[in-house]
Design a protein around this nucleic acid. Structure first.
Lengths: 229, 229
DNA sequence: GAGAAGCTTACCGATTCCGAACGGGTGTCC
DNA sequence: GGACACCCGTTCGGAATCGGTAAGCTTCTC
């Protein structure tokens, strides 16, 4: 999993970007100002830095200059407001690898993130784990997040593991004992428990349009459960 | 295709297991004793080993111990007779990944084979089950679904298992007692029940164009039933 | 100590199963 | 060809099984 350090003082924007990047399967750390960013950079070098130039304290350009003076080769993607072209040029001078001007689309940002990661690390880092979709649900195994109609759905850990176990079957039936072994780490499970059923019910409640008549999380009588895309 | 090495000294059982596994789409090699198993293991490392603990010569446990001492990481599924739990525990000590106790059902063995392969190689190796067709019917054992003219047909569990049992015969006749043992797990089936007939009738009703004059699910008088593709 | 997560229990409705019974079909023997 | 024995198809209803779910308990975390 590729790790991204996001240095952004606007809390709302930081929150949204973190969610977006995490959902795409990146590990994300957020720094609220230049000082914190500097600290995190020295703790753990990420695979990519997303840096807002308009920071309150030290300001992003200074940080960028420091980084390059220290010889750090981590790719940096700069966020800047439109009409600050002088800033942008200065950013390139000091070693930014790419930039996007606000307001930008999520798709554009992600495309540039992927491009930078691929340039720096090759496709294996940029093209991370797949995102699974079924119906109106998107599941991101790398970040552990699930979206339904674009909204985050909170799943308990076991629920998430169960969902992934079903997804990994790619439509094949998963028996209760297989699931108990895979998700619950039971050894050689004989089924005298309804645990799986109860958790499946909770998944349906959270993810199905009509939990009583599920369209995707299906029961195969006498055999187990399977997930239809 | 996943390759399985079967180490089993009972010829009848070995024959049956080989047929079952091959029919499921696995490549199967059979060793009749521990020495031969050792030889085949060194010639070509399989994706999975199915090992009967009760071998005549060296005995399975020794072989298993040797395997692990050599650092081989191939998953091993152990077959053992019921009531040999001490053997089983020793098996786990020496590195068996799972076990089934005899007598076991075909379905259970296959489920555990799939589970082990999935654990070791991921779903792409485990779940490449074939789809069977006859007439306008398509049977997908992985997802437990049956299509007729492209539409889903709902089969009861016993009906589905019966259909699979007939398909497994690949056109050969299956006697009522064989079917009772395979699908119904009757011990030594004497036929004083019409159960098989009733379920065959239901299959015909759901799958045949003209149930009264079946084109595929055929009666062989005095012998049993067979499925013509 | 409040809340969340996870598991078990218990109950209900629905499906499935299977024996019993009957009737139709088939082969055989005279 | 006719009668008979046997084999198979089919229907039916009670009983067993299976899965959904609510409720409550325990454990763990913050």
């Amino acid at each position: 999993m590729a790790h991204i350090l996001l240095i952004e003082d606007n809390e709302d924007l930081a929150f949204g970007l973190r969610a977006t990047l995490e959902f795409e399967g990146y590990g994300v750390e957020v720094a609220g100002d230049g000082a914190e960013g500097r600290k995190l950079l020295h703790e753990h070098v990420p695979d990519l830095v997303v840096l807002d130039l308009m920071l309150p304290d030290a300001d992003g350009l200074t940080l960028l200059g420091e980084l390059r003076n220290e010889g750090a080769r981590v790719p940096v993607l700069v966020l800047t407001a439109r009409g600050e072209e002088s800033d942008v040029l200065m950013g390139f001078d000091r070693g930014a690898d790419d930039y996007v001007t606000k307001p930008f689309s999520t798709a554009e940002l992600l495309a540039r993130v992927r491009a930078l990661l691929r340039r720096a690390h090759g496709p294996e880092v940029a093209d991370h784990l797949p995102v699974w979709r079924f119906g109106n649900v998107e599941v991101n195994p790398a970040s552990g997040t699930v979206l339904r109609d674009g909204d985050v759905v909170t799943l308990a850990p076991k629920e998430f593991d169960l969902l992934v176990a079903l997804l990994r079957r790619d439509g094949a039936v998963a028996s209760r004992s297989e699931l108990l072994e895979e998700v619950w780490q039971y050894a050689n499970a004989r089924i005298e428990t309804r645990t799986v059923d109860v958790h499946v019910a909770e998944l349906r409640r959270k993810l199905e349009v009509d939990p009583a008549d599920p369209a995707h999380i299906l029961t195969v009588r006498k055999k187990g459960y399977r997930l239809r895309r």
